[in-house]
């Protein structure tokens, strides 16, 4: 029992340490991905965790408005973001012959914590997501 309590304390402390590195807001919490991080999927995505994911991703993209699926990271550990489709007056998409690269985030689990990492550019920024549960993919 004592061992279990110690273990829980360690997990709590680890999260606390991570949070202390954060600079007030989640979006500014730029950290490194732990070496033991593994690709992960979200478990039990609820409104709160979806809201946090959207907020963090939006802030990571300088407050750009991003539409996310209700099941984001549930079936895939990768999130591909592209420009919203703009419809022309004929009802057809305007930008229809494109090869734009996506913005990509990936979900990882390390210990008891879940992280998203931006992987499409060189910044490789990592963000701790507090309100979600995740499991290895």
């Amino acid at each position: 029992m004592a061992l279990l309590r110690h273990f829980i304390n360690l997990i709590v402390m680890n999260r606390l340490v991570l949070l202390l590195f954060c600079c007030g807001s989640l979006a500014s919490c730029k950290i490194s991905l732990p070496a033991n991080a593994r690709p992960a999927l979200v478990v039990n995505l609820n409104e709160q965790s979806q809201h946090e994911l959207k907020q963090v991703i939006s802030k990571a993209l300088n407050e750009r408005n991003v539409t996310l699926a209700k099941q984001v990271f549930v079936d895939s550990h990768r999130l591909l973001i592209q420009r919203k489709t703009i419809m022309g007056p004929d009802g057809l998409p305007i930008q229809t012959r494109v090869d734009e690269e996506p913005i990509i985030f990936e979900l990882y689990k390390a210990g008891d914590s879940c992280y998203i990492k931006r992987v499409d550019n060189q910044s490789n920024e990592v963000y701790l997501i507090q309100s979600i549960e995740c499991r290895p993919r």
Binding site: A69, I81, Q82, R83
Partner: peptide, 11 residues
């Protein structure tokens, strides 16, 4: 408006 983003395949 042109800069708005979405998860691929989602609207």
């Amino acid at each position: 408006e042109y800069q708005q983003l979405t998860q691929s395949g989602v609207s």
